[in-house]
Structure formats: structure tokens, C-alpha cells
Design a protein around this nucleic acid. Structure first.
Lengths: 200, 200
DNA sequence: CCTACCGATCGGTAGG
DNA sequence: CCTACCGATCGGTAGG
């Protein structure tokens, strides 16, 4: 019985977080009110506080949920015995997949994190910086391996991450192109942009 | 005398708009208050309304200032007698230049436009859509000319635009890389990603 | 989970 | 350009 109540509470909280992610993406964190959120959940605003501590907690949950997935994935890929350029391709595929299957959370984590407050804000920025450094290290490795062009690795990481983060517009335009075709195009352009051409 | 007063007013308004762009970029449109803006301008909040009509007017001015420059540039480039891939490179150089020299306005126009209200919101979205269509048309032309790879043009435009819009992070990290080096890297990756390789 | 309500802050106006 | 102030809305709490 206690189990059931706990499960119910945690799933209720998960629903609230999911609705919050959707609202924060649509209106932005500041413009989305707790009354908006309450309406979308189907309760009064005051009732939300039986499941969550504050509006800001919702943003933490969203941002760190995404950040944790990113960290686990890059750790996994770092350990694989494949070429650096293949690791980059795997990361690109992962990010596209995240945009497709966790769109609202990833979008909010990417664009609204500045509204986090300070123990969390600093932590998030650190994780973000570390992730980019590790991504850049893979690219630098590929330059040494001669399967990636001698480019500035930091710039390459920013280009790749922001290019994929921009799928927003594609998502909104109601899939005029399939997920597979989109991924193939992105791989062609982004991997093609950094890979050493083995043949013409 | 009237001239002087008019000039003074218009430059005062320009200062307010510039400060607003800076604030909107830093905090986001909704989180930036007119009291914040007043403080950064050096007057009381009520005094701002002698120069502007509303907070929303500031956002119009910023967004449409940027949109107009974009439209004029693409018109200019369309008229040039160069290869499509060269037109794309010219547009990429233009966008990087905009990010470097009009950073606050371009950033705000790119990320905060959704807070425009409706006669302007619709107009802005239309201009945006048209700009992307014209950019994509240049790429499609390059595919026919065989100097651009057979990729989905719309996807390529989004990748390019969002990749450059992401210079944010570079800008914030205090230019560890020069503007010229950054531009060269972006051209290598983005143009290299879409151009047909003439030689290996 | 709701009703009732709080102090703070917002964009903006009146009047000088 | 300022003082004084407005109605609206915000995140959140008390108490049941």
C-alpha cells in the first residue's frame, strides 16, 4: 500500500515535470506561470506544491536529467574501440536522437538553463564545460589519427552542438522530412565537414 | 534648434534600444524589467516612456533592425554573378560578421522573438521563413550547378544558421581564438561539409 | 487537493 | 525627467 502511494506520488511528479518542460519550451521559463502549469496538469496552482518544492526545482530536474544522460553517453563512447571520427558520428547520432525523443527537455536544458539559481547554475555550467571539453578531446584525437581535418576542436564542437540543437525548426515544421533522412543529411554535412576525405 | 532636439531624442532612443538589447540577451526578455533598463540607462523607469511607447516596442526595433539587414544582404548576394557555393560562403561570412559586430541584437532577434505580439510576431515569422527559403534556393541552385552536394537544402540552411548563431559561447569565452581564425574554421567545416570536393 | 490570501514585482500612467 | 501610484500578476503559504 505504501508502495502504491509512493509510486503514485513519483509518477505525479513526473507528469508535472513533463508538462513543465513543454510549457517552458513553448513560453520560456519566466513567461510560463505556475498557474499555466496547474491548468495543464488539471489542478489548482497551490496543489502543485504538494508534489514539488518550487518552480526552480522543475528547471533543475529538467536540466540535470538531460545533463546526466549526456555525461553517461560520452563516457560510454569514450570507452569504445573505434576511430575518433566514428565516435564523433556516434555522438552526432545520439544528439539527434535526443532531440527527437526528448525534445522538450533537451530544448529547455539548452535555452533556459540561465534561469537556474546558484548552487545549481554553477554545477550545470561546469558539467556543460566538461562535456564540451571531452567532446573536443575526441576531435583532437581524430586530428592526430589523421581522420579529422586539422581544425579548431572547440569551434567544431560548438558548430556540431548548435547545428543539432537547431532541429527545433524542423520539429516544428511537422516533419516534412523523415528522421532517417534528416539524420543522414546532418551526418553528410557535419561529418563531411570535419572528416579527412579518403576519396573524392 | 528643432533639428538638435530631434537628433537628441533619436540618439537617446537608440541608446535605450542598445541597452535593452544587452539586457534582453543577458536575462531574457521576460526576466529583464523596465526598472533594470532604467538603471542601466541612468534614469527612473517612468522616464523611459518619454522616448519609447512600451517594452514590446523595444523588442520590435531590435528584431526588425536585424531582419531588415538580413533581407538586404541576401538580395544583394542573389544579384551577384558568382557560383552558388560562393554565395553560400558570402552569406556565412556575413552572418559571422553580424554575430561579431551586432552580437546583442542578433542574439535577441534569434532567441527572444517569440515574445513579440501579434501584428509583429506574424510579420517577423514571415520574414524569417522567406529568408530561409531564399537561402535554400541558393543551395538548390548549387546542387544543380554540381558545386554543392545533393543534400536537403532546408536542413543545410538550418545547420548553417544555427551553427553560426552558436558563436555565443565563443563570444562569452573571451576570444581565445581570433575572429579570423574562427571564420576560417567555420568556412572549412560548413562550406567543406556541403561543397562537392573538387580534389582530395 | 482546495479556498483564501500574502508580499513582491511587474508594465505603465497621471500630473507636474 | 521625477514622484507617486495603479491594477494585474507573480511564486508561494496557511489552514483545512
Amino acid at each position: 500500500m505504501a508502495r502504491i502511494i509512493i509510486d503514485k506520488n513519483s509518477s505525479r511528479k513526473e507528469v508535472i515535470i513533463a508538462k513543465a518542460a513543454s510549457l517552458f519550451r513553448e513560453k520560456g521559463y519566466k513567461a510560463a506561470s505556475m498557474r499555466d502549469l496547474a491548468e495543464s496538469v488539471g489542478v489548482e496552482a497551490a496543489s502543485l506544491y504538494n508534489h514539488i518544492k518550487s518552480k526552480t526545482e522543475l528547471l533543475h530536474e529538467i536540466c540535470f536529467g538531460v545533463a546526466n544522460r549526456f555525461m553517461h553517453k560520452i563516457e560510454e563512447i569514450e570507452g569504445e574501440k573505434i576511430l575518433a571520427i566514428e565516435k564523433v558520428e556516434a555522438l552526432i547520432r545520439f544528439h539527434i536522437d535526443e532531440m527527437i525523443h526528448h525534445y522538450e527537455e533537451v530544448y529547455v536544458s539548452d535555452r533556459e538553463w540561465k534561469h537556474l539559481s546558484d548552487p545549481y547554475l554553477l554545477n550545470f555550467q561546469n558539467q556543460r564545460r566538461m562535456y564540451r571539453k571531452r567532446f573536443a578531446a575526441i576531435i583532437e584525437n581524430g586530428i592526430l589519427q589523421k581522420n579529422i581535418k586539422p581544425i579548431d576542436a572547440t569551434t567544431a564542437v560548438l558548430i556540431i552542438l548548435h547545428a543539432i540543437g537547431g532541429i527545433e525548426s524542423w520539429h516544428r515544421s511537422r516533419q516534412k522530412i523523415s528522421a532517417e533522412a534528416l539524420t543522414a543529411n546532418m551526418i553528410t554535412i557535419l561529418v563531411g565537414g570535419i572528416a579527412v576525405n579518403v576519396k573524392v
